[in-house]
Write a protein that binds this DNA or RNA. Sequence first.
DNA 1: AAATCTAATGCTACAATGTTGCATCAAAAG
DNA 2: CTTTTGATGCAACATTGTAGCATTAGATTT
Lengths: 152, 152
Amino acid sequence: MPPHAQPAAADSARELIAARGGRVTRTRVAVIEALQRSAHPLSHDEIGATLDGAGIGHDRVTLYRALDWLVEQGIAQRIAGGERAWRFEIRRDGDHRHAHFHCERCGQIVCLEDVPAAAPALPAGFAVARAELVLHGACADCGRAGVEGKKE
Amino acid sequence: MPPHAQPAAADSARELIAARGGRVTRTRVAVIEALQRSAHPLSHDEIGATLDGAGIGHDRVTLYRALDWLVEQGIAQRIAGGERAWRFEIRRDGDHRHAHFHCERCGQIVCLEDVPAAAPALPAGFAVARAELVLHGACADCGRAGVEGKKE
DNA sequence: AAATCTAATGCTACAATGTTGCATCAAAAG
DNA sequence: CTTTTGATGCAACATTGTAGCATTAGATTT
């Protein structure tokens, strides 16, 4: 795609990276685009598979570091999800933090865009930087399918 | 301690275990007592250190399995906390789920007994089994101490 | 009290997820 | 084109958790 077709919107991967003074590398671009395309947060492993699929050679460590950098720069955010592995999602305009749903049947994490993860009133002295609200249960797809599924 | 001094309250470690038909072992008793004594959720590692301190030899795997059993039986519950390791806390009367605070400075997890982790209204089809609300920031102690601390 | 039955334990080995150090490569600048 | 240094790729390691299996020791029965 020729560069003159680019819209003015500053959310292309290249622009996101360059605006922070980072180097525009294949890995970073591909990771950002993978996150932007995905409707739900992706694990390190899922992102790695996407890169492989796109023919972009990469190393586990490189991917970890690329993700760390994106989180540091506020381009992506990390969420704890249900399992032991982090998941990542693109951070859209501002710090629009929302709740997540972890399906214990299919293991998927779903963004609940309409459910804010708001911090309630806390005892004096506590300074909240961010709130994480994760709901565990059966998602719409798994619930609809009845109780045929296996756990997790 | 002679057995006749035991109160009628059914929350002694022995009773909790026996009521579920489990075997009363040193490890399980010590784990339950450690959790009961602690004001905040403990990691696997912290519990292990407590056992060592009490002179109770144990194996990593045994501890994992003891904790799994306690969670299965509803005696303890697992929370995700801020880091990659699970933390465990005794489950007090009923399913009294509360929010937790993760201090990014001292790494401690604090129970916010008064803040319920309630599930908000969800899109149709979602069945919520439990909600986890974790707030990240600086706890009262670390906040009071000023900005001298190092991260995490 | 001894024998029995089997749930728990304690190895060993392994799996998954993430991190550190360092030599090399290549993106951006001159 | 050359230089600079951020980013990569590799190897090695750390942490957290599981699986299989022989052995130990709670609970129960004799």
